[in-house]
Simulated scan of single mutants.
Amino acid sequence: MYPSVRVPLRNVNLSQRIEICWSGLGITVTADLDDRNAGLAEALWEALPYRSLQGHALVAGHHLFHVAPVHDLLHLPAAHRVDRRTVPDGTVFCSRLQHLGIKYGTLTEPMPATPVGQVVPGDLDALAEAGRAVWDSVYSSKKPVMAEVRRAGKVSGHRVPRLRAAAPETDALIGEVHAETERIWLVPPQELVDVHDGRFRSGAGSYGTVLTTMLFVNGETRPLGYNVYSGLVRAAREGMPLPSLRHMARTLIAVPAEFLAYCGLEKLGTFTEQVLDHLERLQTRDDFVAVMAHMALYINCLGGWNLHLFPWQAGDRLVPAEAQR
């Protein structure tokens, strides 16, 4: 099903060498982009430099990922797919979940993935050190670790790119979503801090529980960004007619967003109402894509903070069944 990992990398482009820096850890690794998925690699290259909250896989194993502010990752085709369990440590991926991921050790999830490069061999030990430190950040300490991705040897920096719409009202809506995304990109949104501190203005949480609402906020936010909004972008780019796109948007986005607003994500609820009210004014495919792509990036940013803030260590008393035998 997947290409053999023994096939050598083709046409590694040393002019597209990147650095991934975790300044808070004092660790930087270098990676070379290649042509296995050239469109994805080029989109990443053109978006540099940027910074993002560094995340760590919570189920799959030794894997780092963060949300990359690259709108085109949502829809660009990727011809070369691998089983990420089988590829070398240090493989760099870009995904339609809008993630830049790096394998640094054993993975258990059989997920098809789209590689775009490879960490240089001399930096694999440093990569593993970063992986362990980020795991502690996400699972235990809750001290955020920021990643910076930049062209090797170039200056540091950060930007969240803004798409434009032809219609002035649509462009204004995009501007609002973009501004909020920038505001929370490197600083946790107060709404999510309140959720994880157990403050719910709506009274959410049966019998006064807190963990239950946190869990459902996490469970609803991720698919809303990963599947709904990113799926609408892909459907638009793949030619679905505008009336069908509007119908699918109404069908898919309202219910989870209403629930999340009730749980405390009121800004998301407001943006959702604006998007739904605006659907009939989206008269071009490009304007539709611009709105949905910005909503996807905003919600994926919320999802990243959710995963960081959630008290995963609360499950320490639970052990796998095989460990009980």
Rank of each mutant, 00 (worst) to 15 (best):
M248Q: 13
V193W: 06
V149N: 08
H178N: 04
W45V: 06
A47E: 08
P115T: 04
T28G: 06
V291R: 06
A165P: 08
I102M: 13
E322A: 13
M146Y: 08
I102V: 15
P188V: 02
V275T: 11
A166T: 11
L64K: 03
A165R: 13
A296K: 11
E258P: 00
R325E: 08
T108M: 12
T28V: 14
A78M: 11
Q54Y: 09
Q16N: 10
L318M: 14
W45C: 09
L40Y: 07
F259S: 13
P88E: 12
V120N: 03
N11M: 08
H56P: 00
M292S: 01
H75F: 13
V319D: 04
A38E: 12
V134C: 07
F216S: 06
G269Q: 07
E109H: 14
R84T: 00
S202T: 11
P241R: 05
I184V: 14
G264I: 12
L260G: 00
S202N: 03
H80E: 13
R85L: 01
R96P: 00
T181F: 03
T86Y: 03
R201N: 01
L276D: 02
L318S: 14
M292W: 01
S230M: 11
R222F: 08
A204V: 07
V116F: 07
L74Q: 14
M248N: 09
L124Q: 07
M111Q: 15
L100I: 15
D125T: 10
P320L: 12
A323I: 01
C94V: 10
V210K: 15
T251Y: 09
G157K: 11
A31K: 04
Q54V: 03
E46S: 12
S206N: 01
E180T: 01
G157V: 08
T170M: 12
L40K: 08
S95P: 03
F216I: 07
P77H: 08
E220G: 04
